[in-house]
Amino acid sequence: MNVDVQTVVEVAAYVGGGLAMGFGAVGAAIGEGYTAARANLAISRNPDISGDIFKNMLVGQAVAESASIFALVIAILLLFVDVPVPSVLKAAALLAAGLSMGFGAIGSGVGSGYPGGEACFGIAKQPQIASQLTTNMLIGSAVCQTPAIFSMVVALMLMFIDFGAAPLQPTWAAYLGAGLSMGLAAIGSGYGGGLAAGASCEGISRQPKTAASVTTIMLVGQAVSQTPSIFGLLVSFILMFKSFPESTALSAAMALLAAGICMGFGGIGPGIGNGMAAEGAVRWVARNVEHAGDLMRIMLVGQAVSQSTAIYAMVVSLVLIFVV
């Protein structure tokens, strides 16, 4: 069988496009389903304002949809990408772009369904603050999209930056590692940010006068939840832009691939955990606003401890890149 380089690049681009859209569709669909389920519950509770709830449901779903639209854009670009100088290295970069975007859209899609659903339910309970709930929902779900946007940025960089004449061995593994690091690490942060945003919509509908404190602690909690995806972005930038000396040794390539896998999987748990901590704190600031300071402190301490395993994963990745 005779396979030329052009064929290898096309195969990688098509497989990458399929992975980007296939995985990218998982999250948004689940998140929007949750929003719609809560909207149905809300309408059954308060059918008189079904129009307001329906409108809010559609706005919330539209924001949740954006993660999978990013995936669609990357998939279409991969299907029609024009590679002026085909090389096996470019093939690896295109496959990695698909992996980054596909995995990266899962968490943000699921996560941004929660604020949509809770805002719909909140409108049923407190129709007079509907616009306030919609605003809070939009802020929360916009922050949830950040990890998906990071993934899209990494995917676009892998597709369109000309990395010059880097040696095929071991740079191909560095590109695949970069895609996996960003894509997988984005899952936890997107989902965790959604938990915090959902709790804030629920809290504001319970105690509208606590809205300012609730939104503040939601944003702080979400910002900390994003950290694992920022670690993933950092490791993937290092893998993309560090130049590696040519080496035909299998271990040199596998060390770079393992660095990406380590940071990617290692970011999932802390991202979700930080989001859970933020959810608990936001929920209880709404119920007990006098102690918002205590709750903020315990949330940050808890998140810092939960973050530690992401830091271990980053240390192991950096050791794999720079030391071994």
């Binding site: 694992p228 393992a258 896998i261 999987f265 955990g273 859970m276 808890g302 939960s306 992401a310 994963a313």
Partner: peptide, 22 residues
């Protein structure tokens, strides 16, 4: 193996500690 051990091993504690904090 090192990458998988640390990567997958970080998921559980991250989620578990988050639950404790919540």
């Amino acid at each position: 193996g090192a990458g998988l051990a640390m990567g997958l091993g970080a998921i559980g504690p991250g989620v578990g500690e988050g639950m404790v904090a919540a």
